[in-house]
């Protein structure tokens, strides 16, 4: 019996290669490929699968939401998060949302396949070498910082995150203080240097 794997990732080249790689394994197969969160949830409801592999960056929703909803829909099917942004805080959040593993996309294929085979929420696996951030920012502060890293201002950040402008400004102030910088630009630059965020990206 081959283990059917659901793939939810909008990055076609990577996800198609992974799908083919699954097919080439004697014990694994690809149950379905979804390029959007919506399609992924629809296929999860309709197609039987044993493990789900979910990207954090999806065009229509945050991957963390997808993880939580898949977990609620199919508590028995472990979820592997496969992301281009292997960051410590995102790993914490993914596991908190119910993921069984948190992997970077640049991991060798054999390791990704090994984790897919052995995924178990009871024994969460996180990609080795995730640096614990040297600065203790809260998840919300990191969210706001990532908005700034995409070139958004406080107003836009507040709108995207669904918080008030006042709250967003408070987070920004806290981030500046914790990073020991004066300006938002400095905050983004030093946060990227510390590996907290990827400039220009959602994560």
């Amino acid at each position: 019996m081959r283990l059917p794997v659901l793939l939810v990732d909008d990055h076609r080249v990577l996800v198609d290669s992974l799908a083919l790689s699954l097919e080439l394994q004697p014990d694994l197969c690809c149950a379905a490929v979804a390029y959007t969160a919506r399609d992924g949830l629809a296929k999860a409801a309709a197609i039987p699968y044993a493990v789900a592999v979910v990207d954090l960056q999806l065009p229509d929703a945050g991957g963390l939401d997808v993880v939580a909803r898949l977990r609620a829909m199919r508590p028995d099917a472990p979820i592997v998060v496969l992301t281009a942004h292997p960051k410590a805080d995102l790993a914490d959040r993914a596991l908190a949302a119910g993921a069984a593993a948190f992997l970077g996309k640049d991991l060798p294929l054999t390791e990704i396949l090994t984790v897919i085979r052995s995924a178990d929420p009871a024994r969460p696996q996180v990609v080795a070498g995730l640096r614990q951030p040297p600065v203790g920012l809260t998840h919300r502060e990191l969210d706001v910082l990532r908005e700034l890293g995409q070139g958004h201002d406080a107003t836009r950040a507040a709108a995207t995150l669904g918080i008030s402008l006042h709250t967003a400004r408070g987070h920004i102030k806290a981030v500046l203080a914790k990073l020991g910088v004066q300006t938002q630009l400095d905050a983004v630059v030093s946060a990227e240097r510390l590996g907290l965020i990827t400039v220009g990206s959602r994560y």
Binding site: H11, V13, S17, L20, P108, T198, S201
Partner: peptide, 15 residues
């Protein structure tokens, strides 16, 4: 580079 080129290269490496 990060969102397009790198994941595509990762996909190529899988192949």
């Amino acid at each position: 580079l990060h969102d397009d080129v790198l994941p595509e290269l990762a996909g190529a490496r899988m192949l």
